[in-house]
Design a protein around this nucleic acid. Structure first.
Length: 214
DNA sequence: AATTAGTCCAACCGCATAACG
DNA sequence: CCGTTATGCGGTTGGACTAAT
């Protein structure tokens, strides 16, 4: 159960385990290694690739960011609707929901839900239900699955027949009209020197990978 | 211009479960 | 079976960035 993975090892040599933001070099190493050897067996992969990262960290980086088929940003209204409907069905089963949204990661969906939809639900809940429980109550239902029969309001909120309206309301709030970047071209800060505004994108890494002769 | 508050998301942590010897 | 290790999942957090004051 990867119990002592991040503990730095009980004894001896394996010394520092890097944490925090990934550098471009690390990304390249990981991409190259996986291109050559495939993914899986993350602990030994991390070692063999020469990364001072835990296998867990490598896996996460790969699955959530470096994988070539991962779509980033710009969650469409259709995807949003899917998220809302599936969340109503399954609750916080993010990975399960993600399986129905090709290219989306559970992490991204989870973040999207928490930062956009949940907030909207709480907000609208506060304006429609007067007094006490409202936000706590709605918050509860936004973060847990099952039993949606407490109030008609909550039912409506999750009803497939009305969820599209909610989706479009949220779309308005999110300003989808001028929502920005094309998928796959998100820029990320160069963590080698975070004070500088240097960026690279995942798109930049893949050609480099090929160039390196993988 | 400086400071504070709010937002967003990458990455971490802990736990559950699957796989293996 | 049982113990150990690997993997996957969901919750949470740190900090960069942006907007508001």
């Amino acid at each position: 159960m990867e119990k002592r993975e991040s503990s730095g090892g009980s004894g001896s040599g394996d010394a520092e385990v890097r944490k925090g933001p990934w550098t471009m070099e690390e990304d390249l190493i990981l991409i190259n290694y996986i291109a050559n050897h495939g993914e899986g067996v993350w602990n030994s992969l991390a070692k063999s690739a020469g990364l001072k990262r835990t296998g867990k960290s490598c896996r996460l980086r790969w699955l959530n960011y470096l994988r070539p088929d991962v779509r980033r940003g710009n969650i469409t209204p259709e995807e949003q609707l899917t998220i809302m409907e599936l969340h109503a069905k399954w609750g916080n089963r993010w990975s399960k929901i993600a399986k129905h949204l090709p290219g989306r990661t559970d992490n991204e969906i989870k973040n999207f839900w928490r930062t956009k939809i949940q907030k909207y639900i709480i907000k609208s809940g506060e304006t429609t239900t007067v007094g006490s429980q409202s936000s706590e109550f709605i918050n509860h239902h936004a973060t847990t699955s099952h039993v949606m029969n407490d109030t008609q309001e909550t039912m409506d909120m999750y009803s497939p027949t009305t969820s599209y309206q909610h989706a479009s309301n949220i779309n308005q709030q999110l300003n989808y009209g001028n929502y920005v970047p094309e998928s796959g071209s998100i820029m990320m800060p160069l963590s080698v020197d975070q004070s500088e505004q240097n960026y690279w994108s995942v798109d930049d890494l893949w050609p480099m990978n090929i160039y390196n002769g993988n």
